[in-house]
Design a protein around this nucleic acid. Structure first.
Lengths: 334, 334
DNA sequence: GCAGCCGTATTACACGTGTAACCCACGTGC
DNA sequence: GCACGTGGGTTACACGTGTAATACGGCTGC
């Protein structure tokens, strides 16, 4: 129980010694190779010895030998992602765990050289990012031994048109249009790190507008501050074509708008309808309760994980066909 | 440029061949060993060959040989953690990256056997969790080669008394007491997964109350639903000792309370003062704007990372001395 | 009685890296 | 002339696994 050496690692050789068999036999039993014939008696001997010693195979050695790791790396951007992404990761992790894979997340800040050091220490089987990687980044990862890199930019397809970006914007706009609104504006987030994603959502709104024969949306950044939000609203109302409704980048921006409107004695939806995105818990408690667009990120995560798993098994999978369900949660702000 | 073999891995042997030197020399140069004498000319030869081939050392082999990995694993519980934890992880990752370590996060769902498989594929140098691990879990990780496991339960010290748990509760209560409140209640979260953390925060509130000579707080679960929250508030007001203020587990619970109070024509702070915790963006936009307790999780993360790094370097570090700053953000709900 | 075969377990090697131990040629001091 | 460092490099091994190739003994078929 209390050894001198504080923590000597238990190797498969120890198990072999303990069970009086060879390391090969131990390995065969523990990975139960199908085409080997091992009598139940010896199998039991190995299993018990392994349990007694608490043997755990050493990942690096196993990976080195087999050539493939069972780590899936999720590369997250350094900006806050909200609870939707949380659920997505959650669901994906569960599916992958079931398949013997391990999902880990890393927030990635710098350029390709940092990505390189990441892969240097992890050597994942697959890397999953939020937006496509640059060619240079891909090269670095490939050289580091990454087998599968996602998402792959579909060459003929608009990069930005992922379901969790422009799809959300489109859904927001369609809901407002169905309510009879004809002049829509868009509330961008103030954080520059969110600019890319925000503009692709705005793009979804714009397309929904042109599809319906409406004018393109006015867009303006809305900081998370009630007074500044109020100013933006005032400017909109003073414009030649004042909007009757606004799509917000997310629920937080939408809440800022509602608070700003209160400050200048306006209220949703009569003076200006407001729709958010993400369905954070606070949305239901706003004044008035906020209508918002929710992405079923849980099942999206599970779908992604399944597709990834099949991809690792050799089936080239088309990830662009994954269309998650996104739906409107109607409350009182529209 | 376009080889038949789709992606043969570039090894240090390739670099050796390319530079016309031996693998050992290559290794010496690349890890620049101090006590070796390598003329600048050869050094340059190696470096250029490595760059030309785009050599990236293979993590598993390196780890296998050296015995220590540079991965730090953050084990997250499967429940939502809020933006504070996000900032903490962010800051910690930055510090660790600077030190050549790689921080990755994994959400952990099951028992020790899952933890085992986790470590089987990762072999991290250190594991960092939110609450102390059980003895069994620690054993499993130790056997898997994990050198440092945090947090270590201090034997003589109350387990629950971490700064981000009871410290928050204490700070909430002290603020209310300073405002003259003498009967305080506590709004627990409805999610059973949060029970442990919530009760330790409640404990902080209770201790602040007894320290001030007040009665212990009434506690009740408050679901994220306005009507149900309203019912709880009514019950409190009907109790023999009706509270004049309430500490909420977090801002979301606090927002639910405010919404519930609106439904029954009560308002904060006159009918009942409400204080939250976390300072989520939505708190500022509530009606009335929510007073809350904010943890400086960014600097806490950085401190933790520094301590962890020193610990890995051999200095036994006392993590229980880390006292993050937690302060009250006064708005209008108290 | 012997070749052959099958079940059982072992030996031997490869994966890619870090590094201790060694080797060789070349001044250099006496 | 010879022992002797010494700069500049190499050879050899270890880390822990997985698995192909192999050895051995006993049974079967003819």
């Amino acid at each position: 129980m209390s050894a001198k050496k504080p923590s000597r690692r238990v190797t498969s050789a120890d198990v072999a010694r303990e069970s009086g068999l060879s390391r090969a036999t131990v390995s065969f039993v523990l990975n139960d190779k199908p085409n080997q014939s091992i009598p139940p008696a010896t199998r039991e001997r190995v299993l018990q010895a392994a349990a007694r010693l608490g043997y755990i195979p050493y990942a690096p050695a196993r990976t080195l030998r087999s050539g493939r790791s069972d780590i899936v790396l999720l590369v997250l951007p350094p900006w806050p992602l909200g609870p939707a992404m949380n659920r997505l990761v959650d669901a994906a992790a569960e599916v992958l765990t079931e398949a013997g894979l391990t999902l880990v997340a890393h927030i990635h800040l710098g350029g390709p050289e940092r990505l390189a050091s990441l892969n240097t220490s992890l050597a994942p089987a697959a890397v999953f990012g939020m937006q496509p990687f640059t060619q240079e980044e891909q090269d670095v990862m490939r050289r580091a031994g990454v087998g599968l890199i996602l998402p792959q930019p579909p060459p003929d397809h608009d990069l930005a048109d992922t379901p969790w970006s422009s799809g959300v914007g489109r859904m927001q706009a369609e809901h407002l249009i169905a309510r009879g609104h004809e002049q829509i504006s868009y509330a961008l987030p103030d954080d520059p790190r969110l600019a890319e994603l925000a503009h692709s959502r705005l793009d979804g709104v714009a397309r929904a507008c042109t599809d319906a024969g409406l004018a393109p949306p006015l867009a303006a950044p809305v900081p998370l501050d009630a007074d500044q939000a109020a100013r933006t609203v005032s400017q909109w109302r003073d414009s030649p074509t004042p909007p009757t409704a606004v799509c917000a980048y997310n629920d937080e921006v939408a809440l800022a708008l509602l608070a700003g409107m209160r400050n200048i004695d306006l209220s949703a939806p009569d003076d200006l309808a407001v729709i958010g995105s993400d369905d954070i818990p606070a949305a239901a408690f706003a004044v008035p309760p906020l209508t918002t667009v929710a992405l079923d990120s849980g099942s999206l995560g599970a779908d992604l994980a399944h597709a990834l798993q099949r991809s690792l098994d050799g089936d080239p999978e088309d990830f662009s066909t994954l269309r998650p369900s996104v739906h409107v949660i109607e409350r009182r702000s529209t």
